[in-house]
Structures are given as C-alpha cells and as structure tokens.
C-alpha cells in the first residue's frame, strides 16, 4: 500500500521535472503544486493520527486541563494557555521595540551604518534557536529571576519568581527572538513610503517626530502584518521555549512567574516516551493539529493584511 505512495511521489517528481524542459508552464505548475500538497498532507496527517483520541474524547481534548498519562487522560488546555500567555507577553514586549528599531534604523542612523545594523538585525533573526535556548537556560533565566525578585520585593509583593525557568523567562526570550523579525517587516514597509509623501509631510512643517508618526500611520498595515507574523512565530517556537519554560505538564497555572508548558514544547518534551502509553501519541498529534490550524489562521490574517498593504 505505502509503496504505491512512494512510487507515485517518485513518478510525480520525475514527470514534473521532465515537463519543465518540454512544457515549461505545466512543469512549473506541477512543481508549485508540491508546496500546496505538503500543507494539505500536513494537516490531513495530523487529523488522521489524532483520530483515535478525538473519537474517544471528542473535542474535549482541547478544553481539558488534565494531563495524566497513567490514567490515559489527556488535555492540552494547559499547554494552550501556556502558549497564549507566553506569546501575549512576548508580543506586548516586542512590538514597541520592533517599531522603535525599525524607525531608528531607517531614520536616525547615518546612511553608512544602516546597512550594518540591517544585516545585524537579519542575523538576529537567522541565529539557530537552540543557541537562544542555551543562552536563556544558563544566562537569561537566573538574571531575570534576580531582577524580577528585586523589583517585586521593592514593590512589596515578596519574591514572586521562585524558579529561573518559567513562562515569563520563555516570554522574554521569545520577545528577543521575534523583535528583529517584526522589525524586518516594518522596515520593508517603511522603505516603500513614496518620496512625494515624505516631502509633503516635511513641506507642511512637521518636525522629525511628527513625520515619523505620520509615516508609521502610513505603514500601519505592515505593522499589523509584522505583528501577526511575529505572533505566529512566537506560538510555534519549540526548542528555545522548551529549554526555558520549565516543563510543568501536570498543574494548570495562569501565573506567568511559574513554570509551565506550551503546545510545541509539550510535543518536544513528551514525544520520546509517548509510545509507552496507548493514547499519548494521538494526544500529541492533536496538539500539533491545533498548532497547525492556529498557525494557518494567524498566517492567513497576516498575509491578507500584507497583501492589502501592497496593492
């Protein structure tokens, strides 16, 4: 059965690349269809693999916060809430920074430094995520704990952050990771502000600050597009988050200063022992399905906003 799938894929690839030389347009269309097929197959595979658990529990999987493998009870609500908390904090911290970075690079810096800072910005976006995780685990976590505890003691709340690895650590690490990403999108839009509009802004006597405000309003579609792209990235980020989030599967928590779990890190951390249990693999695939569907929705919104911006 499966061998037919393999043969079909081989035949498809061969014919697509051969057609490229004979009927270029059709060859290109067939190759482009591969990409669409990958996404369709991705979602279909997750739905299929998650089916045993979905049949048993229905959609209750997504609203149950009880993760208890020995009793074969699985709910991903815990992880879903963790994902929402971390990405919400990360976005709140990252967006003002990203706007500031984009404006600084495009407005304040001298022309010669712009290229350098732009490249460094791109490099921050391209660094391996596992290296962020390593840094977050050994440097950021302890530093953040002492900073947060100092501030909260000073405010009279006592020591709120009891461990270095918490949802808050993950959120701050995510903010650092997605800032350059959103900044790149905003810079792209910023570069597209037409020359005559820029001149018109200055012609009516705007100061530099006012000009920046007007231009930001002009590129607001790019800001929202960047926000959604960064959000999608924050929700799907795996390795760096899994290293610093603390890995608390069992207890439901809404407090960002406690250790928690996100969907992607749940998959990464629980998959190695999932095969010992009957329904854990389907549960993890259900999590992946949720991640994929949410990611699709967010990216669709982002692409819609960005395409409206360009036309």
């Amino acid at each position: 059965m499966a061998i037919f799938l393999v043969l079909f894929i081989t035949f498809y690839l061969l014919s697509a690349f051969t057609l490229l030389f004979i009927k270029t347009r059709w060859g290109l269309r067939l190759i482009a269809a591969i990409n669409v097929a990958i996404i369709a197959a991705l979602v279909a595979t997750f739905a299929w693999e998650a089916l045993p658990l979905l049949e048993r529990d229905g959609l209750a999987v997504f609203v149950n916060s009880d993760w208890d493998p020995p009793r074969e009870s699985y709910g991903v609500l815990n992880a879903l809430v963790g994902t929402l908390i971390t990405s919400a904090i990360a976005i709140t911290v990252a967006m003002p920074l990203a706007v500031g970075v984009a404006v600084t690079i495009n407005e304040m810096l001298p022309q010669r430094l712009r290229g350098v800072f732009g490249a460094l910005n791109d490099l921050t976006a391209a660094m391996p995520t596992v290296i962020y995780g390593l840094w977050g685990l050994f440097v950021l976590g302890p530093v953040l704990q002492s900073v947060v505890n100092t501030v909260s003691t000073w405010l009279g709340f006592g020591e709120v952050m009891t461990a270095p690895l918490t949802l808050f650590t993950a959120a701050i690490l995510l903010a650092i990771m997605i800032t350059p990403y959103a900044a790149a999108v905003i810079r792209e839009g910023y570069a597209l502000v037409p020359r005559h509009i820029e001149e018109a802004i200055y012609a009516i006597g705007a100061t530099k600050f006012e000009a920046v405000l007007v231009k930001l309003r002009y590129v607001k579609n790019y800001i929202f597009g960047g926000l959604f792209l960064a959000l999608g990235r924050a929700m799907g980020e795996t390795v760096a988050v899994a290293m610093v989030v603390g890995g608390n599967f069992a207890r439901f928590t809404l407090n960002p200063f406690e250790s928690g779990i996100t969907i992607s890190s749940l998959i990464a951390l629980q998959f190695p022992n999932a095969h010992s249990y009957q329904f854990m693999v389907p549960a993890l695939f259900a999590g992946a399905l949720l991640l994929a569907v949410v990611g699709l929705a967010i990216n669709a919104v982002a692409i819609y906003i960005l395409q409206r911006a360009t036309t």
Binding site: G232, A288, L296
Partner: peptide, 21 residues
C-alpha cells in the same frame, strides 16, 4: 499563499509530519 504559510509553519510540526510519513 501556500509558500507564505509554509515558511511560517512551526518547524516542529514539519518534523512530526515527516516522522508520521
């Protein structure tokens, strides 16, 4: 649109997909 979506896809889901295949 599909390329734009795939470039943003969480990388762990791609790993899981290849594993399942």
């Amino acid at each position: 649109a599909s390329v734009n979506v795939l470039v943003e896809f969480p990388t762990i889901t791609i790993g899981l997909f290849v594993y399942a295949v």
